[in-house]
Design a protein around this nucleic acid. Structure first.
Lengths: 158, 158
DNA sequence: TAAAACCTTGGAGTGCACTCCAGGCAAGCG
DNA sequence: CGCTTGCCTGGAGTGCACTCCAAGGTTTTA
């Protein structure tokens, strides 16, 4: 059975294709070995990106089959989950690589990892606050267009 | 007095240089005409970026002095505020240009503007939710490194 | 067993959002 | 008056995060 068919089947069996965002982790198996295209299906990343992550040191060296094809394990998927989360905080890839290096380096880097995560946490809190601010602005504008939609706009571009 | 001096003075007079994020809007005057470098000081954008925004149609055509230098008005600054907010939602510049075009086009685009803002609002809400999710993950990891900091890590990169 | 689908590599290309440069005009201070 | 500082333009360059390509080996399905 091809990956294509596996995916199609999974989608068809579900009651609602959209119940899970397109191309995100169902991670179905009780197994611990996945081809790159399965990982693509679970993570929503492209195979290109997965190989690129490996090249730049954002992924540990992934296991290979006897013919050299990548075989990802569940721990790899967990790591990619974390990377995905960090990515959408806006953390630069270089910083994530830094973190990966710390993890690789061993237990004596606990302190540094803690610092890095704490700093990231602060960034996330700050970004949430910014977004809330923006939300308030949007709500005001939306009200304006919704309710008083007929009054003349006072926005800049003439 | 040069802009440099104005800025230095403003910073020196305040009790804490960091009380306002570096390079953000105090917008001091009761005036309505600012040079590009003043706008740089208020918005934190570079002059390059301000000119670029104009080139790509993200700014309306800004007034000019009799010698051709840009003179921004308060409405321009308001617009830049909005752009700044939209920018940090991750909205692509092209979409902001689209919105600017709608505003320029006149009142009959109210509906479209409303749609665009509503869609953006939904995006912002979704992004806040994502960030909260990420925050939870970070908190778990931070706890791990903070409290049980001595247990062996189970993270991927070996 | 043959075709179709999948995987491999290094390196080049893309799109976005700036960012900088050269060369020159303008304005204000001493 | 000259010097420093600021501003102008078009176009080229940068950095990031992918994204794609060519050329070939592997695995799965019919």
């Amino acid at each position: 059975m091809t990956v294509m068919e596996t995916l199609t089947e999974a989608a068809d069996n579900g009651t609602d294709i959209c119940s899970v965002p397109p191309g995100r982790h169902p991670r179905p198996d009780g197994q611990d070995s996945y081809t790159i295209s399965e990982v693509v299906a679970f993570t929503g990343l492209t195979a290109h990106t997965l190989r690129w992550y490996e090249r730049i040191g954002l992924m540990p060296h992934v296991d290979r089959s006897h013919t050299g094809q990548r075989r990802y394990c569940n721990a790899d998927l967990d790591w990619l989950d974390l990377v995905g989360k960090l990515r959408l905080t806006g953390m630069p890839v270089a910083d994530m690589v830094r973190y990966a290096e710390l993890v690789r380096a061993g237990d004596h880097t606990y302190g540094e990892r803690y610092e890095l995560l704490e700093a990231t946490r602060r960034d996330v809190l700050a970004r949430i606050a910014e977004l809330r601010d923006t939300l308030a602005v949007l709500d005001r504008k939306i009200d304006f267009y919704g309710d008083a939609g007929r009054a003349l706009a006072s926005e800049r571009p003439r």
